[in-house]
Design a protein around this nucleic acid. Structure first.
Lengths: 131, 131
DNA sequence: CCGAATCCGCCGTGATACTG
DNA sequence: CAGTATCACGGCGGATTCGG
C-alpha cells in the first residue's frame, strides 16, 4: 500500500546504479563475512566476534545494525540473566549469498589472469625505477 | 606459463574474502558505470566523462587506470593530432558484467522489501521521537 | 583532447574504555 | 554477554589547475 513502484523496472542504462545499491549495501568491509557466518544458522554476538576474524566490536555492531535495518538479518534478544542475542539470516540474505557465489566463481576463474595482468602492468608502467 | 596456482581453490570459509577481492576491485564508486559504458564497445575518454554522469576527471582517470591494470579494460592510444584514446572492455570484464546481472536481479526482486524493512526499522528505532 | 598533480574535506575504520 | 561512547587516523573522492 505504501509503495507501488515495484513495476517500474530500471532501464538498462541505470543497472550500474542498481548494482551500486547492492554493493553499497554489502560492500562494507565486514558485511559478507557476517552474512556468511549467519547463513549457517543463528549466531551470537560473541560468536561472530570470533568467527569474523579481525573485526572490532564497534564495526561488528555497526555492520550488524545496518544489515538488520535492511532486513538481511534478524536480531533476537533473550532477556536472560547473561544477555543473549542471536542473529539469523533472512530469506533474502540467503538469496543474496547465493548470488554472491556467482561473483566468487568469476573471481576464482580469473584470479590468475588478473594477477598476471597486474604484474604485467606494473612492469611496464612500473614507476620509473629509482628516479 | 608464469602462473600455475589456479588449482588451489579457496575453501568455503574464505569465500567471503574472495568476494571481497571482487568487491574491492569493482566496488569503486565509478567502476561499474565505466564498465557498463565500455561493454557496449570502444569508448573515448571524453565520452566516458559525459556518459558516466557525475564523475570527475580525476576519478575517471584513476578508475580507468585501475581497471586497465586489472586487465578489465584495454587502453588504445591513437597518436593523431588531437590525441585520441579508446577504452575497450576485455572478455573477463564482459563476464563480470554478466555476473553483476545476478546481483542486479536480486536488487530488483527485493528493492521494495528492503525499502520497507528500512522504513520499519527507522520507525521503531527511529530515535525516540521528540523525547 | 587526454591526463597528471596538488589541496582538502568527509567518513569508514580501529583502539580503547565505560555501561547495563 | 552485548553493546555504547569518544578519539584519532588514513584513504577515497571532489575541485581545481597545469602539462603534453
Amino acid at each position: 500500500m505504501s509503495q507501488g513502484n515495484s513495476d517500474v523496472p530500471v532501464p538498462v542504462e541505470d543497472q550500474a546504479c542498481t548494482v551500486r545499491q547492492v554493493l553499497d549495501r554489502v560492500g562494507g568491509k565486514w558485511s559478507i563475512g557476517i552474512l556468511v557466518a549467519a547463513s549457517k544458522g543463528p549466531v551470537r554476538f560473541t560468536e561472530l566476534e570470533r568467527s569474523v576474524e579481525g573485526i572490532s566490536r564497534r564495526m561488528l555492531t555497526l555492520t550488524l545494525r545496518q544489515l538488520e535495518r535492511d532486513g538481511l538479518l534478524v536480531r533476537t534478544v533473550y532477556p536472560t540473566v547473561p544477555p543473549k542475542v542471536e542473529y539469523r539470516a533472512t530469506e533474502i540474505a540467503l538469496e543474496l549469498y547465493d548470488s554472491l557465489v556467482t561473483l566468487t566463481t568469476w573471481a576464482e576463474r580469473h584470479r590468475a589472469t588478473i594477477a598476471a595482468a597486474r604484474e604485467s602492468y606494473d612492469r611496464e608502467h612500473g614507476l620509473t625505477p629509482v628516479s
